[in-house]
Nucleic acid binder design. Structure first.
Length: 416
RNA sequence: GGAGGCUUCGCCUAGUCUGGUCUAUGGCGCCGCACUGCUAAUGCGGUUUGGGUCUAAAGCCCAUCCCGGGUUCGAAUCCCGGAGCCUCCGCCA
């Protein structure tokens, strides 16, 4: 949810943001009129309630003679109060719906346009160009590390088993990521993968991308698509006395991948389930942009440890999620595809999620919503795919980056 | 899965049986002021969170006693439903 005060005071800024995203400007006007209607209905209901309370006190004090007359007046007033309250509730619900429909306001320097209009900020490293590169499915099968056939047999398309050194790779990556995060001051967290509707809605995933989310209808629970969801819910309905707070969450992530038929059908780049280590920060609003840069720096540090060639992109406004004001992706080089593919993503959600989830801090001017930010440290399955692809050797082995070796029993390469 | 108990403004707590200045009591903590040569102690005052009104502040008003309904002129209090926590029984990795 965006700041209603800003909508009232500077609606043109909100309209401009909608334009940048390619979203409807009319939503802003709908929000303004819903806000108007709510306030007038609240004022009316408040006045009636005040009158009712005063009359109620008179009833309590009245003697037997004057009581009946007061009571009949009070009964009549009660009807009016009831009607005004019903009107207030309707107006509040309408406002909430209009409010939820407006995505976060984008930062001023976000590139306008759609998915393809991203700006590349930097290239790091030299992309390896092996001759006749094999993809991670072939390499993973040869190493006995990835078994997609049995994944499909047991769970269906886009599922997999990590076996042998594949399973070891996951544990090594998770340990390396958690180790880095802890050193940087993050609190390690193992987070639940099932959350309540209000938490899922609070993080903004039930809007335009609701069809991406697995829902357990029998239990009114959702499977998270990212650890961000549980980490954002962690402090919901709280006033945080101390900031910043940084958490590194590990959890499984589940995605329906509706509408991605035909994309990345091979291997474990795009799957229904994977594990992830995610950074999540709660900071004061005016520190959000700096924190965003820090998250990006930590992501780059991790990429560097894996000795990967990558590029950093500034995601275009039309490709931002509804919660994000700005997003940077890191895309690493996949030799077999001759392309950069997204490995991590970091978003500044400013106060958008905190408003929905009611997470505040104290300032001189009273309580204020905090800013929330998230960034991938390691999305395990895709990172394994990249490592196998990126570090493949002509002799069929796979080079193990230095930083990973301590977590893999000192192995310098993986040999079939 | 079954039985019972509990949930009050940061923490603890009074109030619920018997509906009406509950406009929620007291303690701890915290903030401010006063006093004493400093600290401590003591005294006085303040201290839930939202919303509305107002140019703004002050003030005034409304809501908030786990959540949602209901009864009533009026609900922390009575009734129904739900959640969370605790105890016991059963089952279980």
């Amino acid at each position: 949810m965006i700041d209603l005060r800003l909508v009232r005071d500077d609606p043109d800024r909100v309209r401009a943001s909608q334009r940048l995203r390619g979203a409807r400007e009319s939503l802003v006007d709908a929000l303004l009129s819903a806000d108007d209607r709510r306030r007038s209905s609240v004022t009316r209901a408040d006045a009636l309630r005040a009158e009712q309370k005063a009359l109620g006190r008179d009833v309590a004090k009245a003697d037997a003679r004057t009581r009946p007359a007061l009571l009949s007046r009070a009964r009549e007033l009660a009807e009016h109060v009831k009607a005004a309250e019903a009107d207030q509730v309707a107006a509040e619900e309408a406002l909430r719906a209009a409010h939820l429909a407006v995505p976060n306001i984008v930062e001023p320097d976000v590139p306008p346009g759609a998915e393809a209009d991203f700006i590349t900020l930097e290239h790091v490293g030299t992309p390896p160009t092996p001759e006749n590169p094999r993809d991670h499915v072939e390499i993973g099968a040869a190493l006995g590390a990835v078994d997609t056939d049995r994944g499909a047999k047991v769970s269906g398309a886009r599922f997999y088993f990590l076996t042998g050194v594949g399973a070891e790779l996951e544990l090594a990556l998770v340990n390396l990521a958690m180790d880095q995060a802890r050193t940087a001051g993050f609190t390690p967290v193992i987070a639940p993968a099932l959350v309540k509707p209000e938490v899922m809605e609070g993080t903004g995933f039930l809007g335009a991308h609701a069809s991406e989310v697995y829902r357990l209808a029998d239990d009114e629970l959702y499977l998270v698509g990212t650890s961000e969801v549980a980490l954002a819910g962690f402090h919901s309905n709280e006033i945080l006395e101390t900031l910043p707070r940084r958490y590194a969450g590990f959890s499984s992530c589940f995605r329906r991948e509706a509408g991605s038929y035909g994309k990345d059908t091979r291997g474990i780049i795009r799957v229904h389930w994977f594990d992830k280590v995610e950074m999540f920060s709660y900071v004061p609003v005016d520190e959000a942009r700096e924190e965003h840069q820090r998250l990006l720096a930590w992501e780059r540090e991790f990429m560097d440890k894996l000795e990967l060639a990558y590029r950093v992109i500034d995601v275009a406004a039309g490709d931002l999620g509804s919660s994000a004001a700005r997003k940077f992706d890191i895309e690493a080089w996949f030799p077999s595809q001759g392309a950069y593919r997204e490995l991590t993503s970091t978003s500044n959600c400013t106060t958008f999620q905190a408003r929905r989830l009611n997470i505040r801090t104290r300032t001189d001017g009273g309580t204020q919503p905090v800013a929330t930010l998230n960034g991938t440290l390691c999305a395990v399955a895709r990172t394994i795919a990249c490592l196998l692809d990126h570090h493949q050797q002509p002799d069929g082995s796979v080079y193990v980056p230095l930083a990973l070796r301590p977590w893999l029993g000192g192995r310098e390469s993986l040999v079939p």
